[in-house]
Write a protein that binds this DNA or RNA. Structure first.
Lengths: 338, 338
DNA sequence: CTGAAAGCGCTTACAG
DNA sequence: CTGAAAGCGCTTACAG
């Protein structure tokens, strides 16, 4: 097997200098004669030359790589459809622009040891954090100290984090719309079911649910559960019903919770939405397979990923983010359950 | 803002040579005095020095980056739980070893234009391809021409693809077990429902279903459908029932299909598994939320990702793959539907 | 135990 | 229109 061709190999083969080959390969077309262009292109093809990004990166101090750090305790950090769609949108946008996406799931305790933190590998950083507000802020600061331009997804814009844009979905607006839809059924009592782990999006949804229902004079209870376990979700809802009676409406903080609620109600022979209305949040395509027509809100996760990539590359180009924060609308999906 | 510190900055600060700093940073501990070590470490900390991977990569001709190319027509190429789990396993393994994962979804027509193909960015390549056998082989050859060590997931080992290991799950074994389980219900007729897109795994499952049922003398029909659309799946199954009557067992090529079948049967008031047994394939956690107790098989996707990463790094170390092909077992998940 | 020096592959400002 | 040369940040074989 021959050694990998480099600029020198190609230059020798084409009978020109490496500077000329470099220009041709980089699409610099002025100051290159037609004949030279042809010659070089032919050599590139014949030798199967591929520019080495380390060389270019060293010279230009640009690597054309964006890091995506997902801090999550679960090994299957990609399992959540929100994350999946976000990463897909980001990855596709970056690919189109010739940038690579370095995907890095990090356990909460291992952030400092991560090579993304310890070494200089990327031109910019995207962050998706879980955990308490304090823990997230602490990690945001840690990454911020690396002085890369950053896009932080689904978190509140914080002070003292320079060169960063916060990209969010409008959880508040979406939750308000869902609560308002539920209100058309004239409920007197409501149950809000949220996960017991901290998540800024969940806090916003809870707040919007709560305020909207309160303003309408609905007696509202809140119950927390381990959303990673359907049995735990069902138990939490069941316990609440036992204690406080059957609510007129159940607002799930996400679709997983709503789906479990739906099954629990069906088992008990409760009519949805006539007796109890149910709503979810963050609709993704998979619901359709379960034959559910859940009233929910569609997350713009994919578009958020695309936007984050766009903002980061524009920032790399221009030297500064245009805005500190961007929020994408959440779309109400009217279904048959509320 | 100060410029990024490099080896020279640190060396000057610590009053040593860059060679010494390099050794310290890389954990070379022999031939370094305790005093020097301390001094350098302090300077590294104080200046916030992070080694630049482009520099190291250029020098060592190693980049510590593995590429994962997923050739898929859909923009949400990550949506499938198999893919998600595979990528998570791969990513986690590589991270632990200090390697980065460059994730790259590629549309079938754009493979040749991809920067993963046109430029030299990675030390090794993982491939997950969709499309016909011919198309997959063509792309495998294309990537193979890049002369990176490769791990190809979910595809038949092909000739003329050097320096490559094929990592598969045992679709044949899993499908046989599922079919055998269905046979305990003594069916006379069976319906196999598969997607209309080409996928090596689907072909293997179909073949194993077919052979197992045939050997038992079961009259078996096959129907294809657009698995991306639950309505299309339901229509395909409904049409088949119309034409050929209700089968005693429905074998879905995957869980999505089985779940739609389950809902269709429930709507028609058919008892599962008493009247019709149903099986799926590639169980992932999300089924539990739908309150389904589907008889299916669990995919070792996460473990396949880990194994792929492990094989690739071992290959980088040793210079050659130990084996040409690896197959991971699929686990039968006995449920209530068959 | 320590450092000077070569060189990995590339881009770019400059001279011709 | 073309090329010689400097230098990006790093590692390593070698000399001292």
């Amino acid at each position: 097997m021959m050694a990998k061709p480099n600029l020198h190999t190609v230059a020798a083969h084409a009978g020109v200098s490496i500077a000329t080959v470099s220009k041709v390969v980089n699409g610099v077309r002025y100051g290159i004669s037609e004949a030279t262009l042809e010659k070089v292109l032919a050599s590139v093809r014949e030798l199967g030359y591929r520019p080495n990004r380390s060389g270019r990166g060293l010279r230009t101090l640009r690597r054309s790589i964006i890091g995506m750090a997902i801090v999550d305790p679960s090994p299957t950090f990609l399992a959540d459809p929100f994350t999946t769609n976000l990463v897909a949108g980001l990855s596709n946008y970056l690919s189109e622009q010739g940038f690579g996406l370095l995907l890095h799931g990090i356990k909460p305790r291992q952030v400092e040891a991560s090579f993304l933190v310890r070494e200089s590998v990327v031109d910019g950083l995207c962050l998706l954090l879980s955990g308490s507000a304090q823990f997230r802020l602490q990690n945001t600061r840690l990454f911020s100290a690396l002085s890369h331009p950053m896009v932080v997804f689904q978190d509140r814009a914080a002070d003292g984090i320079p060169d960063t844009c916060f990209v969010n979905q409008d959880d508040t607006g979406g939750a308000r719309e869902l609560a308002e839809r539920a209100l058309t059924r004239k409920p007197r009592t409501a149950l809000i079911v949220i996960p017991d782990i901290f998540w800024p999006a969940i806090e916003l949804r809870l707040e919007a649910f709560w305020q909207t229902l309160k303003a309408a004079g609905v007696a509202t209870k809140i119950v927390r559960c381990d959303e990673s376990d359907p049995v735990a979700i069902a138990r939490a809802i069941g316990d609440s019903i036992e204690r406080s009676g059957m609510p007129d409406v159940i607002l799930g903080a996400n679709d997983k919770i709503a789906i479990v609620a739906l099954h629990l109600l069906k088992e008990r022979g409760v009519q949805v939405p006539e007796e109890v209305a149910v709503t979810g949040f963050n609709a993704f395509a998979s619901n359709a397979y379960a034959g559910l027509d859940l009233t929910t809100a569609r997350s713009p996760a994919y578009e958020m990923g695309e936007l984050g990539g766009k903002l980061l590359l524009e920032r790399l180009e221009s030297g500064a983010f245009e805005s500190r924060e961007r929020t994408l609308p959440v779309q109400l999906i009217p279904g048959a359950t509320a």
